[in-house]
Design a protein around this nucleic acid. Sequence first.
DNA 1: ATCGATGCAAAGGGTTTGCAAGGTT
DNA 2: AACCTTGCAAACCCTTTGCATCGAT
Lengths: 129, 129
Amino acid sequence: MSKVRESIARAALMYDGHFSVDELVQTLHERGVQDAHLATVYRALPLMVEAGLIQPALVSKHDGQRYEASFERDHHDHLVCTSCGRVVEYKSEALEALQREIARRYDYELDDHVHELRGRCKSCRNRAH
Amino acid sequence: MSKVRESIARAALMYDGHFSVDELVQTLHERGVQDAHLATVYRALPLMVEAGLIQPALVSKHDGQRYEASFERDHHDHLVCTSCGRVVEYKSEALEALQREIARRYDYELDDHVHELRGRCKSCRNRAH
DNA sequence: ATCGATGCAAAGGGTTTGCAAGGTT
DNA sequence: AACCTTGCAAACCCTTTGCATCGAT
């Protein structure tokens, strides 16, 4: 692994959440370590995905692909309040079992999922009425 | 509403699942009804979303934004092949019941959800090995 | 006559690629 | 020397926009 790629990898794994390609380049520049060219980053990222270091982030976003460190993607899902943004993380074995069953039905070998429930939490409902 | 937009709307609502902008234009051309220009379609779609006719499909897009009729929403979720992009739409009452139960547990009033399973379909697995 | 809708072409923004130069073994 | 990596610029794809024209009120 070259030095440039090592810098890219180090920076990528440092993010708490997900990051865009531009943000990554920005970070590298600020850090002054390397002047990784945009094209180089674009070429490095798929390799890092291949190597299992990072993954495309499963956010329904519009601006461009985002990535996140592989270890970020632990098995929890989100229950998001559409009013106040509060997020509850939950985990349901029954749900995961069900997902596996659905994948089996269509003969897909599952390796990931996004599950996000959206609604309004109790306090927001009370506040509204 | 102009005739062109009416044709666009009619075609959009005719799809069983979701569609891309190109597919929509293609359909319109094949139907020969109108030669709706790409730019016109791009301008019409946000209006139709605004009007509640269609919605952006909650698929982590590969190639470009996809849309689906509003009434399609909440009726199915997606199983996406990470290799070839093939999308299977499925619906599971058990799954929805489970979601409702989770929401109830945390006292959220559910009004939407994203559920996307990601994996590799049979033919892609075969091709690789 | 006015005002929105359309076609066209050109511009934008994100991503990919061809190629020559630079590194590494 | 052979091979991989990088920078750069140009190409690409999807989407948006400026502008003149068309259409309906």
